[in-house]
Structure formats: C-alpha cells, structure tokens
Nucleic acid binder design. Structure first.
Lengths: 206, 206, 206, 206
DNA sequence: CATGAATGAGAATTCATTCAT
DNA sequence: CATGAATGAATTCTCATTCAT
C-alpha cells in the first residue's frame, strides 16, 4: 500500500537531513569547489543520482546547507545572548561556548571561514542579499549586545558594526591557521588564552 | 645568433616573475582548485603552453609562489621586528604595518588565508615539513619578540607559541570575513580599532 | 526502481568486455602511445567519459587488456600442450594452431609484438614482475614440453629456457615483418613453410 | 672571415651525422611516436631549434635515418653475401655477423622491428615504394643467395621470397621478445643456438 | 523514489614546430 | 647558422549532471 503524503514528507525530510549533514561535513573539509557530489552521496550513504531527487544541483544543495547552519547559529546566538545577565557576561558566554563547540566538531569553524569565500559563487546575484540577511540575523544580536556593553561602560566605545566584524573575524581566525594540535591537546588553556586576548588584549594593565 | 646564456637567464627570470605575479593574483582571487592555468597565462600575457615551459604543472607553480611570498613575508618581518626599540613597540609596528599593507594590496591577506587551506593539497606528504619551516622562518621572530615583551613585563605571561598562533589567526581573520567596505572607507580608524582590540582587548580598564 | 546489484554487475561486465575488446583492437593497430582513448570509446560505442567510469586511466585499461589476453593465451596453451600425445606432436600442434589463429585474427600476433615493447611503460616498476609472471604462466608449459621432447630424444639437447625464448621470438617475428600478403594469399603453404623452418631448419638433411 | 661553401657543407654534413646518430638511438629506444625531438637534440648536444635547420620536421628526420640505416644494411649485406664462398656459408656468415652486431649495439635489432611498424606513418603514401625499394636493395641479395643455395641442393626447395621473409622475421624476432639477459650473458652460446634453430631446425636428424 | 551507468563540457598537460635574437 | 623561448593543437582526465531501469 502506498505511503501517505505525510509519511512521504517525513521520509523526504529525513533524507534531506542526511544529505545536509553529509554535505556539511564534506564542505568543511574541502570547500565548495573541491567538494565532490560523489563524496556527499557516499557519506550520506545514498546513490549519486538520489542527491538530485532532493537538490537540483550542487549550488542548491549548498544554499540549503548555508541556510540551515546560519539558522542554527542564529538560534544558538539568540539563546546565549538574550539572557538577563550583564551584556559583557553574555558576550563572554557566547564566544566561550562557540570555542567549546569548535572543540567537539573540530572543522566547525571552517564553515564560516569558507562561507564568506563561497557566498558569491553559490548565490551569484543574490549574494548581497544573503550577506545582508546574515548581518540582520546573525550579527545584529551580537552588535546589539556589544552596544549594550558599551552603554553600560564595560567595554570601550567603538563603532559597534566595526567592532562586531573585527571581533568575529579574530574569533574565526584563531583556530583557522596553522595546526590545531595545541588546541586539541590543551583545549581549556587554549580557550582561556583566546578569551583573554579577545577581551582583555595582550597588554598587562596595572 | 643565439642569445647568450645571460640573456636567456634574464628572459627566464623576467618571465618567471611575470608568471609568479600573475599566479599570485589569480590565486588570491580564487584559491588553488579554482584558479585556472589559462587565467594565469592570460594575466601573464603569455601562451598557455609557455607556463609549462617554466613550471612542470600547477602544483609546482604554486610551490614557487608560496616560497616566494613566504620569503618576502619573512624579510619584511625581520626588518620590522629586529630594530632596537622596545619589544611591544616592535610588535605594534609590525602588525600596524601589515594592516596598512593590506590596505594597499587588498588581496594580500588572502594569500595567508588560502595558504593554510591549500598547503596540504599542494605539498602532499611534505606539507608538514613546509609548515614546520613556516613556523621556523616566519613565526619564530614573532614568537621571540612576544617572549621578550613577556620578559620585560609589558605583556601578559602566556605560552609564546600559542600566543603567536592565536594572535596571528586573529590578525589574519580580521580583514578576512564579511565585506571590507568599512576597512576601505575608514582605513585609519579601522586599523586603530583593530590594533586596540588585539593589544588592549575590548574591555575598559580603569 | 533501481537496478538490482546483479543487473548492474551484468551491465558493468558487459561494458567492460565491450571496452576491453575495443581497446584490444585499437591497441593492436596503434600501440600504447598512439592509441587514443577517444578511438577506444568510439569503437566501443560509448562516450569518452564512460571509459573513465570503468578505468581510472589509459594505463589501467591496458593492464586489464594485457591481463585478459595473457590469461586467454595461457588457457589456449594449456589446452593444446597437455594432451597425451608425444611432446613433439603437441609442440607442432600448438604452433600450427597459433599460426592458424593469426590467419583468422590478423592483428592478433601484434598483441605480443607490442606487449613486450610497452610492458615497461604500462607497468613501470612492476614490469619485471609481470614479465616474470608471463614466463611462469605462459612460457612454463611450453618450456616443460620442450624439455620432454628433449628427454625423449625427439629434439636436440638445448637449454630449454633459451630454446623457448628463441623459438617464441622467431615464431612471433615471422608474421610480424613486411607485408603479409603472401601469408593471406597462400596461408596453408605459408604455414607449412614456417613450420618447416622452425622445426626442421632450412638445411636439407639426407 | 666567412666560411667557404665547402667548409659549410662539411659542417652541415657533420651536424647531420650527429643528429642522425642521436635520432637513431632515441628511435631504437622509443619508436616513432614516443621519441621526442627534445631528446634527439639533447643527445645530439645541440639546441632544439637547430634540429629544424637540418630537418623540416620529425618525419623528414626519420626518413633520413631510415635511408641511412637501410643503406648501411645493404652495404653490409652486399659485402658478406657476395663473396665467392658457397651460398650456405655466405648465409650463415651473414646472419651470424648480424647477431654479433646485435651484441655490440643491443638495441640495434629494434631498428628493423620498429621500421616495419612505422614505415606507413613516416612515409604515408610513398610507404609502398619504400618497402619496394627495401625489398629490392635489402631482400634481393638475400633472396638471390637463398635461391643459389636451393639450386646447389644445400637447402630445401622453397619459394625464395617467402623463405626470405620468414627467415628474416624469425631472425629479427629472436632477440626482440622477453628479456635479453641470457643473450648478454652467454652471447656465444645464444648465437650458436639461434643459428642452429634457424638453419637446422630443432628436430634431431639421425 | 532510488540508483549507478553514461555523458560531455571543461581543465590540465604534452610536444612538435615556429620565431626572435 | 644556433638557440631556447613561445605557442597552440591535440590529448588525457575530472566530475557535475542526466538517464534508463
């Protein structure tokens, strides 16, 4: 007997998740150009042709990956950044949490690293809109929190947009270059040192 | 009459520079996988076959680009980091100078961004050795200077290797993500804010 | 509905045979260097890309062709050489049969002609091993039969390895050089004359 | 002061010999398709471009190589085959001498092996004429001598054209297949065994 | 829906030949 | 004449995508 439409939908959604997960992994390992649809299919444990039942092409697949991960990041951020703690505390929580997340999925940070590189190739003309959305959905909460911390005098007065971008860049960059063996071997220390640099700077303040 | 060996050498050297320059440009725009030998040839204003007169293949060409740029970076670093000023001053000079360089050669920072991504593909088994060399030649002087600044009490005590990597990552990351329109429009302010974050942290110290 | 694995296997096997047959033909016409993958595809009546679905590259394709033909030759030889007739009779049958086979498949002898030329290019470092195997699988039965004929006094005492090689070389060489119009026009006579030279020599024995 | 025309001619001829020698060597190692003009130039110790002062292209170069070697072979044959000894003795001398020559230039035999393969590619439409000439100049003396040996009853009555071709093929084939280590290690024995097979056959005649 | 076979456009690479000096 | 730099046509090979079952 044929499946009900809901069953079909459910199967379809589950398959999509399977594919999305595989695509995300392959993507963080290789980037857009170098990732191969065959690898995605293999990792998702489905046939190569099956991918194309769910996604018209590589581009559309990656758009979905991007959308999903951006949404996830947005939710995570919202959760951490909208508590009723002091702004500076919320910021520290957010970044510490993200660094800890890197630890559990060591290639996770690469997602954002690659995202900004590939966004124009994947979205073509609508890339600007996507970046705009990213700014609204993902940066905005961060920016607002930075602003609050500026307002309550806990951090220095700075253009909050620029601050957010610089801070975010520095944060993504930290695990991105050179080997991460130190990060993996002494994660606690590494994370605290990274937090210190970002929040307190390297100078000794007397 | 044939050209003299010196003439040939000169031609070869000039042509190599031409190719290296073109390859560097294309590389910083596209990365290893996406750059096409045809683009390099076109940008260098030579025939596609001529590339192969000078470089056995794409990999060897990129190895030469890497070697050249790493060498250049090493020399620049040495110059700035070995003055007789106080360590903290030298560090600030170095990073400020690098950020100013980014301003004049907007794709320059991408080189390092891509380098760490592609090093394994380009060098295969010897990638680890290359990274080792990079650490020795390029990180070492920085690390030493950090150590000196720690020793004279101007910066906080931290594992200098980790510090160097974190700092470098943050520094590369800052201009690497999202649009750089702000950077291009208000370079002076942007640079000073970046310097502040890196050296003083974002917190207000009373 | 997807094909069953057996169906796929069958398709794969059939396609491989198609390709192997085409490759063999093109190879015996041109040799390794000059054969073009495009010709093979065309002769096999498949797309150029499909070749690479089945064989990683030209080299691997030829390795399979070699393996197949060597195996076939081995089986043919075994069949003819292991009857319970007198050794000399078996030898004569074997070579006469091979010459008749040449007649029906005029390019067949070229396979061995080219094989020894290309084996080093196709197998690189393992070429020696392949030749060793060839000697074991294909020469051995012949050698053994020669030895038996020596033992029963029907042929002259000679080092059987050298004898096999010389004999085989002479046998391959006979149809290999100059035009074969005579061979095609008077196959029976040609074959008998070749057999005479090889087995009785050209001298008249009184 | 400029060279005299004769001097120029002499230089030209010497250069040509240099090139011809190099081309012959490369050819016997690789065959027509696989030999590279660069290798010829290198072996001849001249510039790549210089080749083209002497030969319009690869084809013309090889035609000259062929012509030269065929001429040499013809002269050698004439010398050995036109003594006043018995025909059978002359034939044995000729082939023994050729086998000894192989010993000194181990790839020499390949020349004829490749020649018949490449003649059509190198000469295109005139290939038939070239083969005709080869038959006239190189085979004819051999054929005549075979005929004489048939006439004086020392060898069996056979169609002399076919005999020549079969014999020649067998003779070229002997050193051509499988490794020639035995040939190089025990040349005397190898040659005598080869002579025996060709002239006396492998059967024991009582 | 599911699948792997099939495909061809496109990229890397080779190498005989031409050309400027 | 001599040379090596320069070139592009021809070839191998890759991989996203389509197709038959």
């Amino acid at each position: 007997m044929p499946r009900t439409p809901e069953q079909n939908n459910q199967i379809r959604q589950q398959r999509k998740n399977q594919i999305l997960g595989a695509a995300f992994e392959v993507y963080t390992e290789k980037g857009f150009q170098s990732m191969e649809m065959g690898d995605v299919a293999q990792k998702a444990d489905i046939g190569r042709g099956t991918l194309y039942h769910y996604y018209k092409n590589k581009t559309m697949l990656m758009r979905d990956v991007f959308a999903l991960k951006l949404e996830e990041a947005k939710i995570t951020a919202a959760k951490t950044l909208s508590t009723d703690q002091k702004p500076i505390i919320r910021l520290e929580s957010f970044f510490r949490q993200e660094l800890i997340a890197h630890l559990h999925h060591p290639l996770r940070y690469r997602f954002f690293k690659y995202f900004f590189e590939d966004v124009h190739e994947v979205y073509a003309d609508s890339a600007e809109k996507v970046l705009q959305d990213f700014e609204t959905n993902n940066y905005q909460p961060l920016m607002t929190t930075f602003q609050q911390a500026i307002d309550d005098g806990t951090i220095k007065a700075m253009n909050p947009t620029r601050l957010t971008q610089l801070f975010w860049g520095a944060f993504i960059g930290m695990p991105a270059y050179i080997d991460n063996s130190d990060f993996l071997q002494n994660p606690q220390e590494w994370i605290e040192d990274a937090m210190t640099i970002l929040f307190d700077g390297i100078k000794k303040h007397t």
